[in-house]
Design a binder for these strands. Structure first.
Length: 297
DNA sequence: CGTCTTTGACCCGCGC
DNA sequence: GCGCGGGTCAAAGACG
């Protein structure tokens, strides 16, 4: 690694500082590693296909734009909802962030409104509702959300964190249910939804909401700890240039996505080091991993 | 016994 | 106002 520029690139990201690290980036690594681990999983081949993705939005959604904690929406809730009525699971569009902010204040007003109305309800129900409302009093802004499309037989992909399933719902127009998971770590409010695409049952749609405020738990089944170390694309450093020499991929994006290479003592990590990003980009048979990303108000 | 999943009920927002 | 769909709660059961 004689390239100073590359050095700087690596120094921008320390995979062991997960409490500082936004989830967006880590999930990217995890999914990437998962894709490398399991040949049944998708690679990033079409991830970088420009047909449907704006890389500005992409980099923002992954919070790769340095220190921004705010994820700019690629798809807000309303536009997503409308799109999903016709083509659920496949909508990709963009919207203004201002509109999202505006929706915030409107909703908070509505909340107050609803709170007032609920006061008149009967005792038993109001008991429960009051507890719910009191929770909602603390105007908890919706966390940014983003989704992954992953080709996998497994519904719930290991991503390094521990999740507790708290719900499952049938999805309209789909024979496959949607599962709701919450991060088991205390004070961590990250949630994720997992559902299978009805259009392509081999594709799992995982939607993350929020950012982990803790380290990735070390007590992972199997190899996930290694995945979390994210050495996966260590050798991709040499591929970045090639990848970014493509039509649209900004090197900056890659530089933020690439982890530092300080996990060499992790055997599980080592196996990824021979996989370059370029290799993945040259696998045309693989389905695109990330196709849709969006935030909600 | 602690942790996790299952599942029916419930709440809420939205469109009609 | 009503019905629908998404999201959440929480009791009960399964599991290690």
């Amino acid at each position: 690694m004689s390239n100073d520029e590359g050095k700087n690139v690596y120094q921008q990201y320390d995979p062991f500082q997960y409490n500082q690290l936004d989830m967006n980036r880590s999930i990217f690594h995890q999914q990437a590693a998962a894709a490398a681990l399991d040949p049944g999983l998708m690679s990033f081949t079409n991830f970088f296909d420009t047909s449907s993705l704006d890389y500005n939005s992409l980099s923002k959604a992954f919070d790769v734009s340095c220190c921004s904690s705010q994820v700019i929406s690629a798809v807000d809730d309303m536009s997503k909802k409308k799109a999903s009525t016709t083509t659920p699971n496949s909508s990709v569009s963009s919207s203004s962030n201002e509109a999202v902010v505006e929706e915030d204040s409107v909703k908070s007003n509505k909340l107050e409104d609803i709170k007032g109305r609920c006061e008149n309800k009967d005792e038993e129900k109001s008991k429960k509702q009051n507890s719910n409302l009191s929770k909602k009093k603390e105007k908890r802004p919706r966390e940014p959300r983003f989704a992954f499309l992953t080709k996998s037989e497994i519904d719930h992909l290991e991503d390094g964190y521990r999740w507790r399933k708290y719900g499952q719902k049938a999805v309209k127009n789909s024979p496959y249910p949607r599962s709701y998971y919450r991060c088991t770590s205390q004070k961590c409010v990250v949630k994720k939804r997992v559902e299978r695409s009805y259009q392509d049952p081999s594709v799992v749609i995982t939607t993350y909401e929020g950012q982990h405020n803790h380290h990735c738990p070390a007590t992972l089944r199997g190899h996930s700890a290694g995945i979390m170390s994210s050495p996966f694309y260590a050798s991709a450093s040499t591929s970045v240039t090639a990848a970014s020499s493509g039509p649209t991929l900004p090197q900056e994006l890659f530089s933020h996505l690439l982890p530092t290479n300080n996990c060499q003592n992790d055997p599980a990590s080592m196996m990824y080091q021979n996989l370059s990003l370029q290799q993945h980009l040259q696998m045309p048979d693989h389905y695109g991993l990330l196709q849709d990303l969006f935030t909600q108000k």
